[in-house]
Amino acid sequence: MTVRQADYPPTPASKVGSSGRRLLGTPAKTKGRRSAQRKLALQGLLFVAPMVALVAAFVVVPLVRVIQLSFTAWTGLGTPQPVGLANYRYLYSWSSFRTVLVNNAILLSGLVLWVLLPFLLATVIYKLRRAALVRTIIFTPTILPPIVVGEVFSIMLAHSGPLNIVLRHLGLGVVARDWLTTPYLVLLSVIWMISWATFGVGVQFFSAALVAIPSSYIEAAQIDGARWAQIVWNIYRPVLRPVMQFWFLVLTISTVTYFFPWIFGLTQGGPGYESTTLDYMVYLTGITNGEYGLGSAISVILLLFLLVLLLIYEGGRRIRRAYG
């Protein structure tokens, strides 16, 4: 590399983009420069090659493989036997799988809570003198591994657990329920648990963005007699919209398609399949029962579910951009 000066004559900085990338209008004239550029391209490739190779081997190949496997029957012995659409047809008529789909649809509504609650708290506490302390306290539980969170809530929401005791003490005994063993109610418990586990991160995101709002805006609105709700709707909401979208996207790819560790810690999918989600079903069918073909078909449905969510998200963004 010491001969670099010779084969790569220094170019005026103004004509060179980021580290040697040619800008338009500066053609590569000499043979020497062209080979230098090939060398640069090779160096760039070397920097990204390990990551790209890992992604190819452990994400893209498995993705192709899971689609192939979904059209086969295979339990690990011998070779996968092609069965066409049989796995998908089976899923279509399998009532437990329908329960799982409904569960995922219901849990999706949790997104509203997971986004709105931290947004509201961030806007409410942001002017307080000890806001930073509150945020630090609230952030701490988000470090806990999801299955530990699941265990925490399986203790909290047990039949004679502290939540029911508190409710009875408050004279709200009629509200006390078997939060973890009643169909549908168990989904509410999951939504609440994830809200607890992700709350602190959300507050952190929104608070970071709130700093960008000049306090004179808020003061002016207050002097004009704006109520809190008006300030939230007309100032905080539009300013925080990009962060809201970002947080929404993070939750979509990290939670809505990956409930596994939370459910594993809380209910293991029970009672029956009442708290089983698509990703948990992949585990139960594909790994626990070793039905790789059927499990792969569920994986493909999970991927389609994610794709639909991302398309709705992107579509919503385009529509909003087009109309306002």
């Binding site: 993705l63 899971v66 398609t257 698509l278 992949v282 792969s296 994986s299 991927l303 991302l310």
Partner: peptide, 14 residues
């Protein structure tokens, strides 16, 4: 964006 559960079966077999 790819959720780990969706590729866990081929990861296990591979």
């Amino acid at each position: 964006a790819i959720p780990i559960p969706s590729i866990i079966i081929p990861l296990f077999n591979e």
